[in-house]
Design a protein around this nucleic acid. Sequence first.
DNA 1: TGCATCCGCCTAACACTTTTAGGCAAATGA
DNA 2: TCATTTGCCTAAAAGTGTTAGGCGGATGCA
Lengths: 199, 199
Amino acid sequence: MAVRPGLTAERLVRAGAELADEVGFEHVTVSELARRFDVKVASLYSHVRNSHDLKTRIALLALDELADRASDAVAGRAGRDALTAFADAYRAYAVEHPGRYTAARFPLDPQTAAASAGPRHARMSRAILRGYDLPEPAETHAVRLLGSVFHGFVSLETAGGFSHSAPPAAETWPWILDALDALLRDAPASHRPIKADPS
Amino acid sequence: MAVRPGLTAERLVRAGAELADEVGFEHVTVSELARRFDVKVASLYSHVRNSHDLKTRIALLALDELADRASDAVAGRAGRDALTAFADAYRAYAVEHPGRYTAARFPLDPQTAAASAGPRHARMSRAILRGYDLPEPAETHAVRLLGSVFHGFVSLETAGGFSHSAPPAAETWPWILDALDALLRDAPASHRPIKADPS
DNA sequence: TGCATCCGCCTAACACTTTTAGGCAAATGA
DNA sequence: TCATTTGCCTAAAAGTGTTAGGCGGATGCA
């Protein structure tokens, strides 16, 4: 009543991201956000089109932050160092910001995805892999392998998938990075294409 | 009015799984399920505790089906054949049943998880890896690597993450399996643990 | 066959989230 | 100072989740 909260799309999105980290992205709700700003729900609809729009914006924020972190981590490094730094940045972000990390996986429509930091992620992967000197299409395959391993590991870890057996996930992570590095160094030699010959 | 629908927890869960494949697991709703059975919403609550319970049961069904498929695929195979069959079964299930596959990732409380087919999956991974003769703890690391790669790839693929660039994901998949096989065969030799020495 | 019980689905009601339409008052700027 | 814009409001409707309690047909027993 006295002072207006001063809502803004940016402030809402930022608060939404924090909310996601606290309660999980799937529980981010327009109502809860309004509650946190001590404002009526309908007021948010002047700044955000709808719930889906809000989630999309949180996703874009997360993708941006993640790309920034990864970019900082990789700067000035190459080869195995770059790979490790990239991977660690990725995993650290997911551990520190599980809600945002989930948000980064929110399905975006093609145009939004193209305008997001998604392509930056892909370019960074490629830049790192350039140090391994893979011929196409192996480099593309490798980009996808890295994406799969990082995302797979991190999402299984944050879902608690590794927490009920020894050794701790923190020990598996460097082992995997080591293995990936070795794999990529030897990839050209070891790559024998699989024939899908039905007869 | 005339004939009772004959609701059952099992029938609800099975219909819920189909619904998940049609509209996505996140859009599976008690109301929609009631609509499909032409029954009032409250009626479902005699058979299922609540929405969370329903989703949990769908998750358990999916985990079971997936384990059955993987088990069938692996039967009678070993080494690289087993690895490929296992991985293909995994990916095929996700492609055919995207909603169920997502359901299989639904977070379960520890007791439910322990009673689920989750442990079966882990045992199958281990059984396959036995063919590669890895020393502990490498075998555990490798179990996690396989889980990460398979889950990561499949979830990125079904999210459309690979659909906007060439070559098609179907070509990357065998490349990755090939790489994993090579990696596991050489793993003992190439494994140089990473020192996390802070001083 | 008749009766009591139980089970399965129902109605009713409440709480919560999402979304739209329209209003009022504070901030802005000429 | 006043007109306009902006920002948050009230009101209301639709959808989902959940609980409480009721009714009638099916079932079991004498």
